[in-house]
């Protein structure tokens, strides 16, 4: 698992690569929480290079979404591979977190 952070004019883009499961979900949470400062306007998680996410990983996404929701900061996901898309559809998380096809779409909506 590897997370690359980029700042696109106040929108934090977190590019997640590899596998997120219970062995590294705490690290995943720490990295995201650490990168989300008070000045962040919106968060886009680019999951294009994410191969697998377990329920422990989903919990981190939910936790971040809830924390941001309290601050009225939007969060969206983009570029999900088919297996990852399927995890979000089965768990129903696609109903509570906005998902876009591409990072450009997500950034356009966030901007």
């Amino acid at each position: 698992m590897n997370v690359q952070m980029e700042n696109h004019e106040g929108v934090l883009v977190a590019r997640v690569e590899g596998r997120v499961d219970s062995s590294n979900s705490q690290d995943f949470e720490r990295q995201l929480q650490g990168a989300i400062g008070d000045e962040v306007k919106a968060v886009v998680m680019d999951l294009g290079q994410l191969a697998y996410i377990s329920s422990a990983g989903l919990r981190v996404v939910l936790l971040i979404a809830k924390t941001l929701g309290q601050r009225n900061v939007s969060i969206s996901l983009c570029a999900l591979s088919d297996p990852v898309q399927s995890v979000f559809e089965i768990s129903g998380f696609n109903r509570i977190i906005q998902i876009y096809d591409t990072q450009a779409d997500a950034l356009a909506a966030a901007g």
């Binding site: 329920s55 989903l58 939910l62 559809e89 089965i90 768990s91 129903g92 998380f93 109903r95 509570i96």
Partner: peptide, 11 residues
């Protein structure tokens, strides 16, 4: 078939 649900405890 799925029934349009969501994991419990989320919202």
């Amino acid at each position: 078939e799925l029934t349009g649900g969501l994991a419990l405890g989320a919202i």
